[in-house]
Design a protein around this nucleic acid. Structure first.
Length: 275
DNA sequence: GCATTACCCTGAAAGC
DNA sequence: TGCTTTCAGGGTAATG
């Protein structure tokens, strides 16, 4: 389940083999992802265009193309990019293929089809339906302690878990890193966001960045499907404090980690460390 | 404004 | 062994 560190790792693994390449051909499976793929739009933007950059905003990948277009990708639950030689057998669930001028192919594979592939004009992509409502990226300078504090105090009855999952407030956190950041900050996931006091909020602001940065260093968390564009697993799953550890002892105090469901998503926490 | 539920989807795991 | 059911979750939408 790709969140910010996984998407950042994918961006880093795409750059060496994609920058400067020209797209010669585009193929699609004809099956819809979360939205239908606009094949004609994809071809118009990509074919004959050179890749100028690969960046990330929240959980979105932006592949910047010459001629002023951007290919926007969200990996959903199970999406990944893979490089292959042209003509090599395709993995099941390959939904888009970008043939490159070096004989290779960049492929988008997504079993569950929760991902998104769309194209936009570079100057307008920030105003696209996908990006326009996103809050600041937690690893950017825009995510300040003041911003977090203002959002917390402006919230009404939402739990801190659901507060942090809302991409309109903060873009890039998902189920894994919300649980991890709250544990590191000693905050119960059930606490109302507005009741997080400034001292704990400061700690949370720090732990969000630390948890994400550490996972980026470890090339992300591979729980089920996630691999980078070279097919490599991440290493952060070996360092999780609470996520996926129901019943196991807390690494800090030894109390059994608990799992609860909030908004139909699992939340893992230590009932002793987190108040 | 918020919580809950359903939906999209497939593969893995569990249950029978 | 083999079939069926359950579960996982990012984002969105409908409902209460």
């Amino acid at each position: 389940m790709p969140e910010l560190p996984e998407v950042e790792t994918v961006a880093r693994s795409l750059r060496p083999r994609l920058l400067g390449r020209t797209v010669e051909r585009v193929e699609t499976s004809g099956l819809a992802l979360r939205q239908p793929i606009d094949r004609a739009g994809l071809e118009a933007a990509c074919v004959g265009a050179r890749v100028l950059g690969v960046t990330r905003i929240g959980k979105y990948l932006l592949i910047e193309l010459s001629r002023g277009d951007v290919l926007l990708a969200h990996l959903g639950m199970s999406g990944h990019f893979a490089f292959a030689q042209g003509g090599a057998p395709r993995e099941p669930h390959t939904h888009a293929v970008f043939a490159l001028d070096d004989g290779g192919e960049l492929r988008y594979v997504d079993a569950r089809r929760f991902g998104v592939l769309s194209v936009h004009r570079t100057l307008e992509v920030r105003r696209s339906a996908e990006l326009r409502l996103l809050g600041p990226d937690p690893l950017s300078e825009d995510f300040t302690f003041t911003y977090l504090l203002e959002c917390l105090s402006a919230s009404s009855g939402v739990s801190i878990k659901n507060f942090l999952l809302d991409q309109r407030r903060l873009a890039g956190l998902g189920n894994i890193y919300v649980s991890e950041a709250l544990h590191a900050a000693g905050i119960s996931p059930r606490r109302l966001a507005r009741n997080v006091d400034p001292r704990r909020a400061e700690r949370l602001h720090r732990t969000i960045r630390e948890v994400l940065s550490a996972s980026v260093e470890r090339r992300g968390t591979t729980f089920r499907d996630y691999v980078d564009a070279e097919g490599a697993w991440g290493e952060n799953q070996h360092h999780l404090a609470v996520y996926g550890r129901e019943g196991e002892p807390c690494r800090v105090c030894g109390a059994p980690i608990r799992r609860i469901v909030q908004g139909a998503r699992s939340t893992f926490f230590c009932p002793r460390c987190q108040r």
